[in-house]
Design a protein around this nucleic acid. Structure first.
Lengths: 244, 244
DNA sequence: AATTACGATATGTATGTACATAATTGTCAA
DNA sequence: TTGACAATTATGTACATACATATCGTAATT
């Protein structure tokens, strides 16, 4: 005797399984239609399973996924309730520039504008919590999409933390990708803002001085050791989009 | 005979179940330690289940959740591989303006600049995938931190989806907070960009025309029904920061 | 009255099994 | 060579079941 009883042969169609997706949608519908209000306790898994004619595990998965995106809140013994404050966090994907450009169907190219090894300037030491003499690699790159300037990247790399990068010439691989592949990090800080283009920045990006630029800064650490700080400037028509 | 064979009595401890969490952690460890490189195909669920001494479903759950956060990529028949570009994702908390301002120790205040109910203009219909006659509530608000303009909010609300908001006067609660409390959503799209202040925007925010503005747009849906679209403009000195 | 212990209960998760589905690979014919 | 189609295979998901675990209410104890 097998564990699962043979499913009753459905009259027609390939199957009449109750998908956890169906349940998710139905629950969302009930929320939308105010059948279940925010804060309200909804029936238990067992009861819902009976109602939907499926196994409890299936209801469980539906509810678990709804809890994951903050629609409902669950507690053992206490049951499941519609979230009162669906306070949610947006997940912002941080793509590799090349991938981002290629995803648009454009051709990607980058150029290293300058490269120098030097002692960390005071501002960078402060930003990265570095003290004493620290050698850093300073890179300035321009990224193109179909030969149109796409992003200007100003990057500082802590050579003590990433020594392998010093001999790299970046002829085939960009610093961005080199680091993604070779320098895992455990912590990251990002800052988003807007600024006005300086004369130099405007020239590089092919826009006018004073035009608004979208600024994306990122600093990464491995444990407590700072790895790199990068400031990326985008043309005013750039939009960073994320949907979920 | 029951479906599940009695578990072999573990020598000690409460249980030696193979948790999907254990598997997730172990897989992450193997990625971190470069045992499995980005792009690499990892063993199938069956084999991993054998290795970890657990059911395939358990491995499935671990891998499914890792796929959800972008660590691995899965395709039927093709197997599971480590994501090539571990797109680290930044988690941006969706702040309620008031909370954001108060977190800085500043006093929060807001003003509704205008409020009108009207048929959705073409641009908004297009953006929200709405068709036909749709009544919308259009609100323009200014948020202050210590009486200094902090954010200009331009919001469109789909009244068909959120009818309860129509009588609300927003004298004590901002549209932002009202919606957070009363209108759960299941999908969201956010877009970040930079733009130049128009004359009116500059005046409202107390800056000069053409100054760069940080733009945060958000659209939310419940199921397929659009709820609201909001465009938030910030002064050039604003920085949206997230660390993790 | 306050504290503790305990039982009831809802969710959490592991397992074996069965079948669904997508995608690749191989096969054969045009 | 190519195109159509079938076989193969890894993942996807449903189900019955069993047990784990957190937590709430209540009863027993201090």
């Amino acid at each position: 005797m097998t564990a699962t009883a043979p499913r009753p042969p459905e009259a027609s169609g390939p199957r009449a399984q109750t998908s956890f997706r169906t349940i998710k949608t139905e629950i969302l519908r009930r929320i939308r239609d105010r059948i279940w209000q925010p804060g309200e306790l909804i029936p238990g898994e067992e009861e819902l399973a009976r109602e939907f004619g499926c196994a409890r595990v299936t209801v469980n998965r539906a509810l678990r996924e709804l809890a994951q995106i903050g629609i409902v809140e669950r507690k053992r013994r206490a049951g499941t309730r519609i979230a009162e404050h669906p306070l949610r966090e947006a997940r912002l994907e941080i793509p590799v520039v090349r991938v981002e450009v290629e995803a648009l169907g454009a051709q990607y190219r980058f150029a290293v504008l300058s490269r120098e090894t030097l002692a960390a300037p005071e501002a960078m030491r402060a930003r990265l919590d570095l003290s004493g003499d620290v050698r850093m690699l300073h890179l300035r790159c321009l990224h193109f999409a179909d030969n149109r300037p796409w992003q200007f990247e100003d990057r500082w790399i802590n050579l003590a933390a990433v020594p392998d990068i010093e001999p790299e010439t970046f002829e085939t691989i960009s610093p961005n990708e080199w680091l993604v592949k070779n320098a895992p990090f455990s912590e990251m800080e990002i800052a988003l803002s807007a600024t006005a283009a300086t004369t130099e920045e405007a020239e590089l990006l092919g826009i006018a001085k004073g035009d608004p630029l979208f600024v994306f800064e990122r600093t990464t650490w491995l444990l407590d050791q700072p790895l790199t700080h990068v400031r990326m400037l985008h043309r005013p028509d750039y939009r960073m989009v994320s949907r979920f």
